[in-house]
Design a protein around this nucleic acid. Structure first.
Lengths: 376, 376
DNA sequence: GGCAGTTTGTCAATCGGTTGCCAAATGAAG
DNA sequence: CTTCATTTGGCAACCGATTGACAAACTGCC
């Protein structure tokens, strides 16, 4: 086999490719190598380095590395050995330029410090990593403006986007979706893929549980007015409560924080309800603590149920009963779907889909008990 | 001004540049534009598109956009107008190829679901975004192997790395550090930049607080044996306890989780200590709950202090007294330092530095009280 | 008006891979 | 020993930006 030598066009050098059948040509063996600084010594090896080492052309290296079977098995082996030898890893930017694919996914979150998101992130991260993708994270600090900016900033880096409990409006979301493959979590937007929990089972279990304890009137603490999830939870509750013989009132909308729960204590008491279902765990905990500060015993005087089963919801005293949302599985499925979209982009567009298979379930702890008859 | 037309080399076309002073050349005005598919219609505009729109060359566009002052003001304006018009945003991959800089920072975390990290991430994210950088997040799920893999995967994407409570050993860390600018959080490694809290103030306040309540013997629940932070906390405590007239014993090493705290209850009781300082809040909470399950009243029988002031540490009953670590400021400073390294890479290497200015403080809540004399 | 000095903007090479197209090499069949 | 089909691997044109070198245009001054 004729020896070819490939050299990067660097300085005065040129790509030299010895004519295969031509006269052997003396080839100035020693090649004085004019004491030029050994550039790229620290820099990562490229396919050109491998090409030189394995005595093939750069394109062959490229194919050996990611088109298994395209080239001769022996050559492939040789190239891969050289790559390993040089400790080669491919340069994502260089690869992304011609292909347009970065092997990354962007995750936009309303508020990193809200524990609701931890498990979503964890699930997403696990699935993404396993599929060879890397997550890029951005939180929008509860602001739609900042979320829009974050989306702008992150989108060019990533092959797809996942919006967790986004503050954007439907139109903004659709606009993003036609730019990049996009999946929304905890929200339903026409024309856009979504992953959301099926809240019915959990809500039904909660209703059964409460009516079994003798409760007949329930208050729902709603979350932010513009929260799709809050509306969904309220509607399911209102639809299903009657068949369990449960009267129900809505209190809110309120801020979905500890403070938001604390604030509505008076209204809850005034409503005469013996049980409360809060939009999320934070509100439930806030309400519970406010009640206790007023000397009311939970659950004797008031039963409280939260939503999500966030970290810390079992730290309280009594520990909080709550409807658990399978957040990590939601994150996982969202990544799954996003990659389906990303990898199927050039083929026929996969149909829009909304996952609803992720059932919620009631976790009974200490904040629910027999309905009090003392009062009203 | 002579009209120039720049066209991407696409299909049969070539870059055409009309000789400025040459004969006007009829220039086939209508340019039939052979019904070719309007390629790159959906694709993002490039500087070539802007160049065409503003009637300049691509390189002029590049300079107009990020070398203010390099070219004529009027031209600069025209180019920027065109860029805005076309809704241009630069392609990070294309830019990264020649410059090697991605405007991203990688954050490696031992466990996303550990609330200790939330605030670090939040602080880091805020600072990075403000400086025009994007965060890439990876968690290593508590495994040094996975962390090494995550580092490998993330490093090519980013300009710098931040390791939060890493599980890697010093040599691995140093190896990473000579590859990319690197900052470690909550650990001191020779030759590598670090950001860590100054634990002395918080520990001293805790000692003052406890001895003020009459405590004379304290137990320290240590964390993982290989945790630098656990050692640091223990040493500070052991060094400073005597001057407050406090006897001190170490219990552990233990797992830094709720379960880890629960497990050592027997040992704590056996030690005869009236107060406990735990490696972190999770252990403190675990211990407190175990104690309560055994019918022991906190703080009457046992005073407990945690470390970090994580989310949820005030949910417990009684709420946990704890030494607060300024986690968000730590994240912020880490990014700050990482960018200092990144942006100063080509200049003189900035000296290694360890930030220690971030003081901890004691947060007194309900889990500490007068020392019990009932026992021992 | 002529000439040196400064602006301004263009050319072309480059970053590190990917891939369509083609030619050489190989193998099989006649 | 041809001839034809099939591998195999190289060439070169991209992807979208950046930047050193340089030429044209413009300035000011005598």
């Amino acid at each position: 086999m004729a020896v070819r030598s490939y050299t990067r066009v660097e300085g005065n050098e040129q790509i030299v490719s010895a004519e295969t059948g031509a006269s052997p040509e003396p080839e100035p063996e020693p090649e004085p190598e004019p004491a030029r600084t050994p550039r790229r010594s620290r820099s990562a090896p490229t396919i050109y380095d491998i090409a030189k080492a394995a005595d093939v052309s750069p394109s062959t290296v490229s194919r050996a590395l990611n088109k298994p079977g395209r080239i001769n098995f022996k050559t492939e082996q040789r190239v891969q050995a050289a790559a390993k030898e040089l400790n080669y890893r491919h340069n994502p930017m260089a690869r992304a330029l011609p292909t347009g694919r970065m092997q990354t996914l962007g995750l936009l979150i309303a508020d990193i410090t809200n524990p609701m998101f931890f498990n979503v992130v964890r699930g997403a991260q696990r699935e993404a990593f396993q599929r060879g993708y890397t997550l890029v994270l951005a939180d929008s600090q509860e602001s739609d403006l900042r979320e829009a900016e974050a989306a702008e900033r992150v989108a060019p880096f990533v092959d797809g986007l996942i919006l967790v409990t986004t503050r954007l409006n439907d139109d903004q979301i659709r606009k993003l979706a036609e730019w990049k493959p996009l999946v929304v979590i905890n929200r339903k937007v026409d024309g856009v893929d979504g992953v959301l929990p099926d809240i019915t089972p959990g809500v039904d279990e909660a209703l059964v549980h409460l009516s079994g304890l003798g409760h007949q009137s329930l208050a729902f603490l709603s979350g932010p007015a513009n929260s799709w999830m809050s509306r969904a939870r309220r509607e399911t509750l209102f639809r299903n409560a009657p068949e369990h013989g449960m009267a129900i009132v809505e209190i809110g909308p309120g801020v979905p924080t500890l403070e938001g729960g604390r604030e509505v204590l008076t209204q809850v008491l005034a409503s005469g309800a013996t049980a409360v279902l809060a939009y999320n765990d934070l509100m439930a905990i806030g309400l519970m603590r406010a009640a206790q500060q007023h000397g009311l015993v939970v659950p004797d005087r008031l039963s409280i149920i939260g939503f999500d089963d966030i970290f810390g919801s079992d730290f309280t005293s009594p520990p909080l009963s709550t409807i658990r949302t399978p957040l990590d599985r939601i994150g996982e499925r969202a990544v799954w779907r996003a990659l389906e979209l990303v990898e199927g982009r050039e083929g026929s567009p996969p149909p829009e889909r909304h996952e609803l298979a992720l059932a919620t379930e009631l976790v009974v702890r200490g904040s629910t008990g027999l309905a009090s008859r003392v009062f009203i």
